[in-house]
Amino acid sequence: MARRQKKINEKSAIRNRRVKHFFTYLYMVILAIIIIYPLLITVSSAFKTGNVQSFTLDFSSKWTLINFKRLFTETLYGTWYKNTVIIAFFTMLIQVAVITLAGYVYSRYRFIGRRFSLMFFIIIQMVPTMAALTAFYVMANMLNALDHYWFLTLIYIGGGIPMNTWLMKGYFDSVPYDLDESAKLDGAGNFRVFWQIVLPLVKPMIAVQALWAFMGPFGDYIMSKFLLRSDEHLTVAVGLQQFITNTRDQQVVLFAAGAILIALPISILFFYLQKYFTSGLLSGSTKG
């Protein structure tokens, strides 16, 4: 009797486990499909010919590279891409330099106004960028900077400083102070401690910050739409938007092709650096 009971228990345990496994995999597969389906539509559309009637997943038509060719011959996409890369590159270069220096200082030094200044800028930064539109527009008019990249680049750089400085500070904090101390005992100056001892240890976080800073201008729509005026000066986000708002001539396939050329390199970089920034973010949030 007891043996039979035990057998039934085992059986029901196995069945329970099977049900659990089944629903777990079911959930994960459905979620995977929901994620992949829309992305696949965009990818496959990029390789379709001519005027497609609908934006769906459809492998029946022949695959072609004509859209990519059209993108660079018939539209300004190549120029937009180049513009965005230039802006993104300088944003990355300057912002990373600035926040690395500032993050280091906030991590290693106690100085007057340390706490107040960082808090102040983080709070002020919560005022939405939209607020700045009018101010920047008038300022650009006064400085004759409308339609020029340097102004837009400066805005991208400045906007990211407070939050990223704070994240950099959190990462610098995770480098043990003993390293600095012993280097200083050996006679290294402030600058050498920074440049030769601490900096090499935070390279992964610098890479992550560089990626974020680089991605910013690719994703921004508002500022570039507002401050860049002529068609050949646009960035890709604003340019691509033209392809889909223009309902007259169906350029949805061009949008898809253009989207892939942006998403692919960025996603690859993302996955390459992913393990660094997840750990970096978590250490930032737990440590404070």
């Binding site: 994620i35 994703g219 996603s267």
Partner: peptide
């Protein structure tokens, strides 16, 4: 992770 890796404005436009 894909929805995070692909730039948001591209996903939204799609």
């Amino acid at each position: 992770l894909l929805p995070w890796a692909v730039p948001a404005f591209i996903s939204i436009m799609s």
